[in-house]
Amino acid sequence: KKVTINGVEIKFNNPEEAVKFALELAKRLNLRIEFHGDQIKIE
């Protein structure tokens, strides 16, 4: 399963991993996060 985070394609074994990764990243950098299907936007 491929997920695009800020235009960067990252391959994950499952979608939950991708979501956890994105949330952790957003929390660490104190950023806002948006989900659009397989696209995750962090700003």
Rank of each mutant, 00 (worst) to 15 (best):
F21G: 02
I40S: 01
E24Q: 08
I42H: 03
I5F: 11
K2R: 12
E9W: 10
E34D: 04
A18S: 03
A22H: 01
L25K: 00
G7T: 06
I42N: 04
L23T: 10
H36K: 08
K2V: 15
I10Q: 01
L31M: 12
A18G: 04
F12C: 15
N6T: 06
A22W: 14
K11C: 15
P15M: 14
A18L: 13
E34K: 06
Q39V: 14
I33Y: 02
A26F: 10
I40H: 01
I42G: 01
N14Q: 04
K2Y: 11
D38P: 04
H36V: 12
E17W: 14
L31C: 13
V8M: 10
E16D: 09
I33K: 00
I10D: 01
E17T: 05
L25Q: 01
F12L: 03
I10M: 06
F12H: 01
T4M: 13
I5A: 03
R32W: 12
G37M: 08
E16L: 12
E43H: 12
N14V: 09
N13F: 12
I5Q: 02
K20M: 08
H36W: 13
V19P: 01
N13T: 11
E16P: 04
K11E: 10
V8R: 09
R28A: 08
L29Q: 02
N30R: 09
L25H: 01
A22Y: 10
V3A: 03
K27E: 09
K41W: 14
N13L: 13
H36Q: 10
P15L: 15
G37A: 06
E9Y: 09
Q39K: 05
T4I: 14
E16C: 15
L25V: 06
V8K: 07
R32D: 04
I5W: 10
A26L: 12
K1P: 13
H36I: 13
Q39T: 15
F35G: 02
E24I: 08
K20D: 06
R32S: 09
L31T: 03
I33D: 00
K11S: 11
E9A: 08
K20V: 04
G37Q: 09
A22R: 00
P15G: 10
E17G: 06
A22P: 00
I33N: 00
H36Y: 13
H36D: 12
G7H: 04
H36E: 11
L23N: 06
F35H: 03
T4F: 14
E43A: 09
N6I: 12
K41N: 09
E16R: 08
D38K: 05
E9K: 06
V3F: 04
K27M: 10
